[in-house]
Amino acid sequence: MKLLVCVTQTPETTANISFNADNTEFNTTGVNFIMNPYDEWYALVRALELKEAQGGSVTIINVGPATNDTVIRKGLAIGADDAVRINAEPKSSMFVAKQISEYAKQGNFDMVISGKESIDYNGASVAAMIAEYLDLPFISFGTKMEVNENIAIINRDIEGGEEVVEVATPFVLSAAKGMAEQRIPNMRGIMMAKRKPLNIIEPVAFDDPVAVVGYTLPSAKSAVKMVDPEDMDELVRLLHEEAKII
């Protein structure tokens, strides 16, 4: 099994989110970054389990600047064999998908796996676009996968139940909770990761049809209004005039 796992870097979940002065860029000052948990816990770990059971290799791929190398090295420390970083700012889902698919075309991979979405921009679209660029089947939101020879049986959560699909390799999968369990890198893995290849390649030219115009923060939660339990008229008035829900 030759597996390609897409990993992205996201702000840690407790980070304070702010934007630059004209609200066109995320302000990264003072923000700590982590590997996107869906990529790490589910996509990468399931790929490693498959490799451990059936042999093969796991390559991780990231689109980003050199500051992403710490997150990439964590993936190597957890157990990936090698890594590729496409040296470019990940400007949009389509840009990222284009870059990854160009690399994947040359690699003859049995599966390309990513997390179901990143926890920052929540696009949930890169894996689907990669499948489209590669003209491969796409299975989204997989929660369980068993592989026998070149046939994978994948469970997907759907509204009110579960769907089970069968697909032959090669294919693209986005992984959700349930697919695997988080692995914490150990100290030997961290040291061994330094000796694993991290290949840096330049992006292919891409005329991105999508551009971000701006960002806004959700409006701040207003203070809770306390109403005297005896004063039902006031409660009704507030619900009607201020909350406008009755």
Binding site: R73, P185, M187, I190
Partner: peptide
Amino acid sequence: EDHLLARDAVREW
């Protein structure tokens, strides 16, 4: 990088 990865791994553990 070693230090930060080690710190985060043990903190998580």
